[in-house]
Design a protein around this nucleic acid. Structure first.
Lengths: 200, 200
DNA sequence: TAAGGTACCGAACATTCGTTCTGTCATCGG
DNA sequence: CCGATGACAGAACGAATGTTCGGTACCTTA
């Protein structure tokens, strides 16, 4: 099936382009696009590209090269629970859009870094071994925030706490002790988010 | 300055291309590249592209279109713990490469969706209320995977288990019961990742 | 049943693409 | 002082690109 009257721009064409882009990181030429879409006329590709452009899914560089538009990377977000008994759950209520995962979790790209979590001293805060912590680099933090501190030349992820005017690092796991650093506590950054990838 | 003998491939050329790509999300044509680099011969561009290709920064689609290579996006991911006493912790050991959070967690954009988690039936699997589950939509899954199922017209996130030839949904929280669906079990998708945003 | 719209096909065409090959001008080791 | 090497310039060329235009088959709506 192809682009039809009901869902003129949310059809398979865009999805195939997006998957192609995810694989190759480039927008293909019209002839390649024709092959991708299973049509044989470049003129038709040209027509569809115009529509995607008007809808904000595609755009042009200053040199008139086709490129992804603002909405190209947007991803649907569903609230659960949601009505979903229908044959096509996609038409259910409760959807929102997010332009990209990066954008929702990193505010300041130049100060943001990923750190892979080792150990399970923070499991009770939902931070598991192998997770990627999104860290916003800064040297101070508020009590209660989860921080990345440098202790004994190693990164440590802990809650920042305070005990009689001294900062302490509290794990979220009863099996681990509270760390009371002697001297200065060096903070590397604070947790801004978390990303977990499941291997399958 | 341009490509020189000392740093033939890590010079300004690559950086300018990367900046262009970051802005437009496309690799430009050779003539545009020439302009970008401040040179005037496409032949020279062609030469440099070959070198970037050999170094893994550029590649080709099956249709022989120029595209970013594996190393084009490389960005540091720190392992924790890691040596970090130095003035610039970025030079520490233990780095991996990742181009964007989106890319590490979504393989097939057209089948991937975010679902905001409600409730804490999966806390022991590190899935908390308010987290965003990255879901790859598909109708079947393997036992042991975390799936999004449709139960009573609502999305439910649970482990997929099996009890005497019947599929069951197992929570990761002792306070919740195992769900034994009467009749068919409708699977919406399987967990491919998780994203948490910390509000601050 | 006629009119109009939609979803495509196919050919023609000027423009632009990337490649190739030849040429120039510094630099540098010997 | 000389020959090699590297960093580019410039022209030529076939192949591929995207646009335009005319055409067809189907489906609505009136």
């Amino acid at each position: 099936m192809a682009l039809n009257t009901q869902r003129p721009l949310e059809g398979q064409y865009l999805e195939k382009l997006q998957d192609y882009y995810a694989e190759h990181k480039v927008i293909p030429s019209y002839s390649v696009l024709a092959g991708l879409w299973g049509v044989s006329a470049k003129s038709w590709v040209s027509e569809c590209v115009k529509r995607f452009e008007e809808a904000g899914y595609l755009g042009w560089t200053p040199d008139r090269q086709l490129k992804p538009g603002k909405r190209f990377f947007e991803r649907r977000v569903a609230d659960a629970p949601v009505q979903a008994g229908l044959p096509n759950p996609a038409i259910a209520e409760g959807y929102d859009f997010v332009s990209s995962i990066d954008e929702m979790v990193v505010r300041v790209p130049s100060k943001t870094e990923l750190i892979r979590v080792k150990g399970d001293s923070m499991v009770e805060a939902g931070i598991h071994e192998g997770d990627f912590l999104v860290v916003e680099k800064q040297h101070n933090a508020n009590v209660g925030e989860i921080v990345v501190a440098i202790v004994d030349n190693e990164f440590t992820v802990k809650y920042l706490g305070r005990e009689r005017n001294e900062f302490v690092l509290k794990p979220a796991n009863k099996a681990f002790p509270v760390i009371r650093p002697r001297g200065r506590l060096e903070i590397y950054g604070v947790m801004a988010g978390l990303v977990r990838k499941v291997f399958r």
